[in-house]
Design a protein around this nucleic acid. Sequence first.
RNA 1: GCGUUAGUAGUUCAACUGGAUAGAAUAUCAGAUUUCGGCUCUGAGGGUUGAGGGUUCGAAUCCUUCCUAACGCACCA
Length: 598
Amino acid sequence: MENVLDQLKEEIKIAFNELFNYECDIENISIDVTPKNFEGFYTLVIFPHLKSLKSKPEDAGDKIGKYLISNSTVVSDYNVVKGFLNLDLSDSYFKFLFNKMKKSKDWWKSQKKDNEVMVEFSSPNTNKPLHLGHLRNIFLGDSVSKIFEAYGYKAHKVQIINDRGIHICKSMVAWKNFSNGKTPESEKIKGDKFVGNYYVKFETENQKQIKKLIEEGYSEDDALKSTPLMKEAINLLQLWENKDGETIELWNKMNGWVYNGFESTYKSININFDKNYYESDTYLLGKKNVEKGLKNGLFYQKNDGSIWVDLIDEGLDNKILIRSDGTSVYMTQDIGTAIKRFEDFPKIEKQIYTVGNEQDYHFKVLFKVLKKLNYKWADECYHLSYGMVDLPDGKMKSREGKVVDADDLVNHMIETAKTRTSDLGKVDDFDIENLDELYRIIALGALKYFLLKVDPKKKMLFNPDESIDFNGNTGPFIQYTYARIKSILRRANKLEISYNNFDINKIKELSIHHKKIINHLNSFPDIIKTSAKTHSPSSICQYVFDLSKLFNSFYQHEKIIDGNNNETTSFKIALSDLTALTIIQSLELLGIDVPERM
RNA sequence: GCGUUAGUAGUUCAACUGGAUAGAAUAUCAGAUUUCGGCUCUGAGGGUUGAGGGUUCGAAUCCUUCCUAACGCACCA
């Protein structure tokens, strides 16, 4: 009974043979999960075997169904629709599953594997505060690493911080020119917002200077490079690369402000990393490898000194790896970072990059280059590419300032949770501290679920009105189902109804609700597996939502604490308990907490 | 121009990777329960899966030609 699918296939193989004298390989027998709108749990598709069966699909299905009822240990009933044989399974099978799940707390976890994975996510620029797009990225990466943990891997959560380059120099120039020594402390704003403001300041002031130059007769291209501000920024980058003391000091100070700001955002959404990588630490290693590759004839050098890779044979393009002035590009540091990570963690089997789909091409190139450099793990690098988050009134454009700020959004969600919850008046006896925690749990549950339920690779629409909806396919709906079960369990305990030790075999008949819930619970490990293989938390969302709906339907149709206090009562309570545990575990994979009451 | 990805109820998303009558949620309408928590449950309407052609027992899914959209094609990151 441990694996019904295999068992059913074996039994069907025998049925084919005995009824139709048809030898069929077990691999050719396909059994699917029966769709919701049909009766049964598993379905045999008969069409592929028609030629060998030499009879109409309906007749064959009928014969096999009859045969299975009398010969199978798990099939209790069947129905045939066209060429599909739907099988109902026996109570004893579901009782067996129930006992198995009840016995071990970790029944749903995969066996520990010796290998590890690394998941990179978030990876912000140090000149911009986090926004809605980052949130999708962060929740995805965080969830995927948790899913891999449940699947048996050790997962390292890391981020790469783009702490170097012309962008941060622009912020530094603006601060030097326009701040009069102001600091986040003196202005009482978050460090990332503070620095971000100077980046914007640079852009607006620089635009004015460009305009002025064009009026003085510069061409547009020349004007872009010739403004006093831009010249100062370029100069600062050179000073930085030459490790000029004063420049490095300012750079450290401003990055420090930004990191403090990020840290407080991460804290507010319950996110942490095992290790940070900094571009400034890895770009030199990248350069070294590119030069090594050049020496080995893997890359080529143009007359101006720039170094390129030719990927035309692989269906890609020529791509620059090092500029003619010897400075590195984005690709260079990514090469260095990848190598460094496999040095730091020799046991990682694969590396997952959570980065938006506008960089699909970049990662194709990166993996090919690593492969050329003869790193065999290059094949195990995976770009977890996700679609943009669109807003109802058009796209987010950070340059136009049309962004949804992460901190603002979280606060807005918390406010909404507060209004909704206090309207219901069920938690009036909570003290302030618990209330604040409750609002936070609900708000983050709504937000994370909303962003995770869509298949990562697809773009998604963020509708603020719908994201704060707490009905239907939402995080709070699932949290509510959990809280409601806990309420039942509290009552059971108060009434001293024991539900840990009872003999399930004394129950005469399981209802369809019981069977469906047990069957659904049992599929949890499979869902985790596909979720890990497809790098997609959305299947976990679908799973836990369906579980909640199944439970609510059960709850509505059957009274759980029914006054009988017999084996069936205990079983129904225990089934509720098991459902609650599975809801917790599923939501944990999504990074979502649950409240005991709400 | 070239390349990549996508296009599914009014709207937001599914569809176990080629299986049935394409499912949920939401909105709308009709009902149930007001007893363990009404953020619950049951039902109805709503679709030529962007369009055409092909492959086969069978296509939203694979191939092909169009149409539309996003992204990419920098000595930017």
